[in-house]
Amino acid sequence: MIKFQNVTKSFGDVSALSSINFEVDDGEFVFIAGPSGSGKTTLLRLLTRELTPEVGQIFVDKQDISSLTKKEVPFFRQRIGVVFQDFKVLSERTVRENVEVALAVIKTPEDRWQKDIDEVLKKVGLTSRSEMFPSQLSGGELQRVSLARALVVNPKIIIADEPTGNLDWDTAKEIMNIFERINNDGKTVFVASHHEDIIKGMAKRTIRLKDGKVVSDTKSKKIK
């Protein structure tokens, strides 16, 4: 479903990613791990088509996304769900309105919004916070809003960039449990993280990067 084929990306003289090759099947849960500056975020930004590679191709559902035109990019992004480390919630809108925006973007009929939003808020445990503004929520709750917004469009792929980076351990575990449930529903989950405890605790396929290169691609054992 997702395929990186000999992907290279650099910023000026700095090589961010070099000859990256891997494939991810439908319904897989994959961690992209590595220290800061290893190229995790660049890899995810290539996958969300914020960046394009200098060399190589990236396939999502057999479509080469690096060749998409500017006008095609939004329609590609509508098919994926993205969760950000800094949440990227709309501060002037309530939790419900933040999720509504995603439905409006994909042109879901308004009569379906209430039901879809109620379902997704229940899934991430935010039902009681639906009319609150972001300034009234904790970090974990903001990440749930970001997740709810990504999930409500029912994407086949969820991409998360350091979703636990700004959260305490307990909250991070709760968020990762939600990701696991989403994965169990059949969605492909792609998470960039440097949180080794989280990665080891979940025992999922892990692609490790160092200095822009894949150094390992393994399935780790779950540590209780």
Partner: peptide, 16 residues
């Protein structure tokens, strides 16, 4: 600007 960036990342078209 921040809102437009978010909208763009979640797939909003220029017309949206």
């Amino acid at each position: 600007r921040g809102e437009i960036e978010i909208l763009s990342l979640i797939g909003a078209t220029s017309s949206f």
